[in-house]
Design a protein around this nucleic acid. Structure first.
Lengths: 343, 343
DNA sequence: CATGCTTCTGTGAGCGTTCACAGTAGAGAA
DNA sequence: TTCTCTACTGTGAACGCTCACAGAAGCATG
C-alpha cells in the first residue's frame, strides 16, 4: 500500500480535486469558473459546493500561461521621486486605481521608473507581457517609456493629456482650462484686478492649459495681460515660494495670485506671510487640485477640485476596455471651485 | 508548403527559440537562466548571445507554475484609508520597498484592505499563494488579517512591532523609546520643565513606547509625571490640534510639547498659534518621524528622524530571507534627533 | 582495464489551467 | 422514424518552464 499524500504537506486543491468532489469533469469546473455558460444548474451547484468545501482558489499562473493574459496591471510612475513624496494627489490616484482594480479582482503592480536603469528594466518587464496594461502617471512631455510602450502596443492610459505622444494614446484628465477660468473669474468676482499666476511646468498640459484659462478670462474682462504677473514653478512647495518672491519683486501691487497647484500655493502663502501681507485681505490666493495640502494650509485654500476619485475610476475603466480590445479614448472630467478662507 | 508563423502576429520567443538559436538544449538554457551552474563557458556564452539576439524574456507564469513561487510580494495596508492619505511616511516606506524589491527583480503588489470585504478577498488571494510574502503596514493590535496570514504560514514582515501577534512574526522598527528619550532630553536641555506629550494610539507600539521614553527621562530628571500633561491622538493632524487644546486647558503653563508624530505636531502648532503662543519662544514643540510634514510646518519642526529608507530596505531583506527559509527576525534601528526651528 | 568521480548536457514528465473538439441526450421538425 | 438543432459534458492537447534523471565525456584512482 503506497502512501497517499493525505498526511504530507498540505497541497492546495486543484481544479481536479474540485471536479472529483463535484462528480464532474475539469472542463465543467473551468466553465463554471469562467462565467458558467453551457453548464446545467445541477452541475453549477455541485461545482460551487465543491469549491466551497475544498477551499479552491484558481491558480492564476496556470491560467495566465495558457490565456496569455496576466490579469494584472501596472501603475507606472516615471516622475522623479520627489514629486511622488510631496504631491498628495499621487496618493489619491494610487489608492483610487488600486480599489477600482480590486473590484475587478485585478492586482496592481507598483512600478517606479526614476532612473535610466529602472526605466529599461521596467520597459522590458512590461513589454514582455507581464502586465496586461499600464496606468501611466507622467505628465511631462517626451517621456521615452510611454512612447516605447505605445509602440509596443501595450494598452496604456495616461493621467493627464500626454503632450509628447501621438493622439493614439488614451488619457483621462480634468478640464484644466475650464478650472483655471473658474478660479480667475472667482478672483475677479471678489474684486481683484492685479492677479498674478504661478503656472506649472510649461511642458505639461496642466501648466499650459491653466495658464491659457487665466489669460482667456482676463482678456474677456478687458484686463491687459502683464508678463510681470506670470511666473512658472514645478509644482513643488519650494517653487511656489520662489515664484511668489519673483512675483512680489516684479509686481508688488498684486492683489491676488492664482497658483497652479495647492502645494505651490502653500509656498506662496509662506512667501506672502514673510512680507507681512495678509491672506485674503491684502492678497487673495487660489490653488488648484483640492489636495490635502489645501486643507493643511493656513488659511485653508480656495481651490479647484480635481475629481481624482473619478479620474482613477475612469482610468481603470478605459484601460480595461482597451485590454478588452476597444480603441483608445480620451476622457475629460469637469472641475469644481471650492471656496475656503484664502479668497 | 504550410505557412510558418514568421509572417503572423509576433509571438514572444520562448526558451525553445533560445535553445535552437544557441545550438543547445532547453535544459542548458534554463540552467544559464538560473545561475549558470554546471554550464560550460562556451554554452554559457552561446546562450547569452542567443538571449540578446532573440530578445528573450522569461515567462514568469510558466516558471511559477512549476516552482510554486510567484516571485512577487504584497505590500499590505490594513489601516483605514485616511491615514494612507495623510501620512507622508507611508509614501517613503512604499517607495523604499518598491525600489528594494526592484533590485531583486521582484514586483510589488499594492494591497489595500480597508473594509471587511476587501480583507477577506485579500486574505484569500494571499493564502492562495499568489504572492510569496507580505510586507505589512498595520501597527494596530488585533489585526485579524495579520493573524490569519501568520497562521497560514505566509512569510510576513511588519513595519513596527505588532502588538497583538505572537512573537513569531518578523518586524522592523525604529527604536521608538530611545527616540522619545532623545527628544525629551533635548527639550530639557533647552530649559523646558513643563513638558506635555501628545501620544499616538495606545494600542500601537509607537504610542506606548514613545510615551514610555518620555516618562523615563522625566523620572531620571527627577520631574514628577503630571497626568494633565499627557493626552493621546491618532496620528492625524486633527487629533494633534484637539490634543493640544486639551493640554492647554489642563495645563496652560506648559512650556514644551513632545508630539508623537510630525503630522500631529502640525496640528499642535495650529492650536498654539490660535492662543497666541509663539513657537519656540513660549512653547517648544518636538515632533517624531521627520516626515515631509516636519519641513512643511512653520516653524520647521525639530523632530526624531525615523530611518525609513533603512527600514524599508531591512523589511525587504528580512522578508526575502524568510521566503528563502530562514526564521523570523526582529530588527530595531536607531533614530536620530534633527534640530530645526521649533525648539 | 575497470571503476569511480566530477562536470556537463539532453530528454521526458508534469505543474494547473483553458481551449478546441468530439460526443451525448433530449426536443422539435420533417 | 430520422434528422437537425441546442444544451450540455468530457477529453486530449497545449501553454513555457523547471526538475529529476540518464547518460556522455574526461580524468584520476584502484
Amino acid at each position: 500500500m503506497t502512501m497517499s499524500n493525505t498526511g504530507g504537506r498540505r497541497r492546495p486543491p486543484t481544479i481536479h480535486d474540485v471536479a472529483r468532489e463535484a462528480g464532474v469533469s475539469r472542463g465543467t469546473v473551468s466553465r463554471v469558473l469562467n462565467g458558467g455558460h453551457y453548464v446545467s444548474p445541477a452541475a453549477q451547484e455541485a461545482v460551487n459546493a465543491a469549491i466551497r468545501k475544498t477551499g479552491y482558489v484558481v491558480n492564476r499562473h496556470a491560467r495566465s500561461l495558457i490565456t496569455g493574459r496576466s490579469d494584472s496591471v501596472g501603475f507606472l510612475l516615471t516622475e522623479p521621486q520627489e514629486r511622488f513624496f510631496e504631491d498628495p494627489n499621487f496618493n489619491v490616484l494610487l489608492r483610487g486605481c488600486t480599489q477600482a482594480l480590486a473590484s475587478h479582482d485585478i492586482p496592481l503592480l507598483l512600478m517606479l521608473a526614476g532612473t535610466k536603469d529602472e526605466r529599461r528594466r521596467i520597459t522590458r518587464y512590461i513589454t514582455a507581457g507581464h502586465v496586461d496594461g499600464v496606468l501611466l502617471v507622467s505628465s511631462h512631455s517626451g517621456d521615452p517609456v510611454a512612447e516605447e510602450l505605445r509602440e509596443a502596443g501595450v494598452p496604456l492610459v495616461a493621467c493627464g493629456k500626454p503632450i509628447g505622444l501621438g493622439s493614439k494614446v488614451s488619457y483621462v484628465a480634468a478640464d484644466d482650462r475650464d478650472g483655471a477660468r473658474d478660479m480667475v473669474r472667482h478672483l475677479l468676482s471678489v474684486g481683484r484686478r492685479r492677479i498674478g499666476v504661478v503656472t506649472g511646468p510649461l511642458d505639461t498640459p496642466g501648466g499650459v492649459e491653466r495658464l491659457a484659462g487665466y489669460k482667456e478670462v482676463l482678456a474677456e474682462a478687458g484686463i491687459e495681460i502683464d508678463d510681470r504677473l506670470i511666473v512658472s514653478g514645478d509644482y513643488s512647495r519650494a517653487s511656489g515660494e520662489a515664484g511668489a518672491e519673483r512675483l512680489l519683486a516684479q509686481a508688488p501691487d498684486l492683489d491676488a495670485v492664482f497658483v497652479a497647484s495647492d502645494l505651490m500655493a502653500q509656498g506662496v502663502l509662506t512667501a506672502l506671510g514673510r512680507t507681512g501681507r495678509r491672506v485674503p485681505q491684502d492678497v487673495a490666493v487660489g490653488g488648484f487640485d483640492d489636495s490635502s495640502a489645501a486643507l493643511a494650509a493656513r488659511p485653508q485654500l480656495t481651490t479647484i477640485r480635481q475629481p481624482y476619485d473619478r479620474i482613477s475610476a475612469e482610468m481603470v475603466r478605459v484601460l480595461l476596455a482597451q485590454i478588452g480590445g476597444e480603441d483608445p479614448a480620451a476622457v475629460i472630467l469637469p472641475t469644481e471651485l471650492v471656496r475656503r478662507e484664502s479668497t
